[in-house]
Design a protein around this nucleic acid. Structure first.
Lengths: 323, 323
DNA sequence: CCCCATTACGTAGCACGTAACAATG
DNA sequence: CATTGTTACGTGCTACGTAATGGGG
């Protein structure tokens, strides 16, 4: 068994069992991959991929389990390289983050600038996606960190750590009837068409209602991207509901922002990464810059705690003094 | 990075940094190992072993972390082979167990005979040791199963499952004053020298005393091996305290056995194996033979539950109908 | 008929073994 | 001086690339 063989089966699966495409992506020949897979299967005495004639049609049941382990091995190999890099040159490396548009656009710039200053030799890689995609990227080990604008617990391989709570605000054109409202009421929002984040992208608007009446909101338009929302608010499509941190007093003063923190339950932004990830110095610094209570010590402790419940307790204790 | 290189550094560490000895054990040349280790270190840009002159003196700090990951990789590789074996020929393979003398001698024979009948092509491997050694063997992945005569929670990598409770009995020669005792009292034991299991081997005798007075027992002799204890009881060294299951009515009728279950708190025998172990069909059958409530479904669920507390609850529920 | 995996074959690289060397205690 | 790791060197294996072959949809 060779590491390359494991890499090959892993990549072939990732490329939907297309060996040619895999070969192209790995800059190698396709017969080479074919051969190595066959050799591995011969050595193990089990087919990993089922073939119909000359096509790989599906992963066998044995293959499923083997691929899982292979993935784990490849991640460990990657982490060994990280470890080596850390000890040979702790100032260079790679930091990859998957998150949402709002984070990239409004929160990360300042933090990543600081990282760039401190670590000019660390290359930064950002990927955007839905909460679901972010979680999957981190689970697959394709990015180091997942930053989600909500608490997610459906990725058991990830250790998610709460960073900060955020609220929503309402943005309207200055000529909109709501523009002069002092304190926004929920009924105000029901009267006008809304423009806000995609349901499912972020969770549906979490309404803060004591009575259990379902909110009768009219979502006229939704987008994944705060700037798109603002644009359509500017065009008069309706009332925008966005994250408070996405209102930029400098650039957005052609819009009126109204606090809506009393209308919606606050959300919690979380940062997380895969269990077993080797955390490099600059990664720990990044996390601490992003959420000052998540010091290296706290993060290490969270990683040492295998039980989600205990981690929750840890974070509760750590967050308290920061509120 | 090659799998062999990882294997080499792992083995060299295991052989106390002696490359020559490692080479001998792996039936390869020692320059080959030296070279591969150097190559790996060059590739990673970090020394894994610190050298003074021509001797490997210690593992570097980077090496510590790397070796940990390397071990994990090697275990995953082994488990891939297990998986392949399971799918290609689920009736042949290897079953290795680390446990104490009493288990090997009095409990396992019947169970292993059944396994041998059902799976004549499965080779069986038993290793004996103290509770500590058993746990370490299983943690290192050198045996599939650890069977301990007590509950141990100091091996976080192991998933330990309770099997059955057992009590102690007292054995004496027929001419001993206690031989005709109807119901043994604790004071009876205090009057005579005792021969029992090594303290530390099994935990010290767990005394069932309502009053908190420390027991005033006179351990005249201790051994790891029940047969040794019996032998010395036969020679008149004193009163033997052994596990009930270790009294064999057929062979031991030259000794008188007295129930002592009311004098000592019962112990719980546990079986466990390393997290992430791929459990073969015959392994699951073995576990179920050993502890009928630990069916394949229960074991799988235990493995799927990462949190020790939740596992405890699971076992509590599963054990109830069996008591 | 195109796409794709397998087979065939040649080559370059490398892992491994033997032998000589160096350093340590 | 014995033990142990490193360097030097030769060889056989094998991974990989190119080219040709064969099956499926």
């Amino acid at each position: 068994m060779k590491l390359q063989q494991l890499r090959y089966i892993w990549e072939v699966k990732k490329h939907d069992l297309n060996v040619s495409a895999t070969a192209a992506h790995l800059y190698t020949s396709q017969p080479g991959i074919s051969k190595q897979i066959r050799l591995l299967e011969d050595e193990l005495g089990v087919e990993i991929f089922a073939r119909s004639g000359k096509h790989l049609t599906r992963v066998t049941s044995a293959g499923e389990v083997i691929l899982e382990r292979a993935g784990e091995i490849l991640r460990q190999v990657a982490s060994i390289k990280q470890i080596a890099d850390e000890y040979s040159n702790d100032a260079s490396g790679r930091l990859s983050i998957a998150t949402t548009y709002t984070q990239v656009r409004y929160v990360l710039p300042k933090i990543l600038s600081t990282i760039r200053e401190r670590y000019p030799d660390v290359s930064l890689h950002i990927r955007q996606g839905t909460t679901e995609e972010i979680g999957e990227l981190a689970t697959a080990g394709e990015v180091d960190f997942a930053i989600t604008p909500e608490v997610v617990d459906r990725f058991p391989e990830l250790i998610m750590m709460p960073c900060y709570e955020w609220n929503r605000c309402v943005v309207v054109r200055p000529d909109h009837p709501l523009a002069s409202t002092k304190r926004l009421a929920f009924e105000d929002l029901e009267r006008y068409p809304l423009v806000t984040y995609d349901a499912g992208f972020r969770e549906r608007l979490p309404v803060d209602s004591d009575d259990e009446t379902p909110p009768d909101l009219n979502i006229a338009m939704s987008a994944v991207d705060t700037d798109v929302i603002k644009t359509y608010v500017r065009l008069g499509f309706g009332v925008g509901v966005i994250a408070t941190m996405a209102y930029d007093p400098g650039n957005d003063d052609d819009l009126v922002a109204l606090d809506a923190s009393h209308l919606f339950t606050p959300s919690t932004t979380c940062i997380g990464c895969r269990k077993g990830t080797f955390l490099r110095k600059f990664m720990l610094e990044f996390v601490e810059l992003f959420a000052p209570h998540l010091t290296a010590a706290v993060v290490r402790q969270a990683f040492a705690t295998s039980q989600a419940r205990e981690r929750d307790e840890l974070f509760r204790d750590v967050l308290l003094p920061h509120r």
